[in-house]
């Protein structure tokens, strides 16, 4: 039984890391604009798909990954510039609907460009599993966990130690006051979307060797990332990360210890319970009201 437990934990943390990156993207945009960006999952898909295509035309592996991330960031920026910004006087709900539209559009576009097949990326460094007692861990899992940890730490540093990061937080607290003290709010929004897209794209290329990718792969990852962000408390970036890892581990433990048929149900029941008893999420600030 203990090896099932250990294996479930390893799997859970790996998948949870991807959820965490997606959830982090949700949290950043929510922080700046109170908008839940439902195209976040599509960033993940576009990242993985671009990398697959770039590899197919013979781009060297590392370069392909970086170019794929650049493609995703560009899409994030375009989304903000041409869909979100023109609607800046719209209500939050309207903006959320715009992001849903963008997500459907991106999915459709991906269907046209890449077709309906599943695609796979090669693992970053071989597929020979490493044994930990009776459980095993693939090198790719280590990559996923490692790079996620680094990215999360960098985002943390960014928000707490840099002027740009603090300016971004200021925009979320009060956009009018922020613009009065000379923060370019528009550019900050653009920046937030670029950063979220980058994190989503990174999740995409990291997870593709394990989970494959297809034009509609973003839907599921987007939903799970959203659940992660809710679990951790929307608007708290580190909460979203913790929520993501927690969700991944819960799912995996549910599958390994209780029943694989109820895996998703277990994760979502826990999400519901959290929303009932702690609606602000595990790490959200209670009763926060922006005036």
């Amino acid at each position: 039984m203990s090896d099932v437990l250990l294996q479930s934990l390893i799997t859970g943390i790996t998948i949870g890391s991807a959820y965490a990156l997606v959830g982090l993207g949700f949290a950043i945009i929510f922080n700046v604009s109170d908008v839940v960006n439902f195209a976040q999952g599509e960033f993940v898909m576009v990242g993985a798909m671009s990398a697959v295509s770039l590899l197919a035309v013979g781009t060297p592996f590392v370069l392909a990954l970086f170019l794929a991330l650049i493609v995703v960031v560009c899409i994030g920026l375009i989304l903000e510039k041409f869909a979100i910004e023109p609607a800046k006087s719209a209500t939050v709900v309207s903006t959320i609907i715009i992001t849903i539209g963008a997500s459907i559009f991106l999915r459709g576009l991906a269907l046209l460009i890449w077709g309906k097949d599943f695609h796979s990326l090669p693992a970053f460094s071989g597929e020979t599993p490493i044994h930990l007692g009776s459980a095993t861990i693939t090198p790719q899992s280590l990559w996923v966990m490692g790079i996620t940890a680094i990215l999360v730490y960098l985002v943390h540093l960014f928000f707490n130690r840099t002027i740009t990061g603090k300016a971004l937080l200021a925009c979320s607290a009060n956009p009018i006051a922020a613009s009065l003290i000379g923060i370019p709010v528009k550019r900050m929004m653009l920046f937030a979307y670029g950063l979220s897209a980058l994190l989503g794209g990174a999740a995409g290329v990291l997870i593709a060797p394990i989970a494959f990718t297809s034009y509609d792969a973003g839907m599921m990852l987007g939903l799970k990332g959203f659940a992660a962000a809710i679990l951790g408390g929307l608007g708290n970036p580190m909460g979203a990360v913790a929520g993501g890892v927690l969700l991944g581990v819960l799912e995996s433990l549910g599958a390994g210890l209780i029943s694989s048929g109820y895996k998703d149900a277990i994760a979502f029941v826990i999400l519901l319970l959290v929303l009932f008893f702690k609606p602000q999420g595990f790490f959200g600030r209670a009763g926060e009201e922006r005036v």
Partner: peptide, 11 residues
């Protein structure tokens, strides 16, 4: 749409 079955397989 599951992406990982190692938990079930180790079981």
């Amino acid at each position: 749409k599951d992406t990982d079955m190692t938990a079930q397989l180790s079981k």
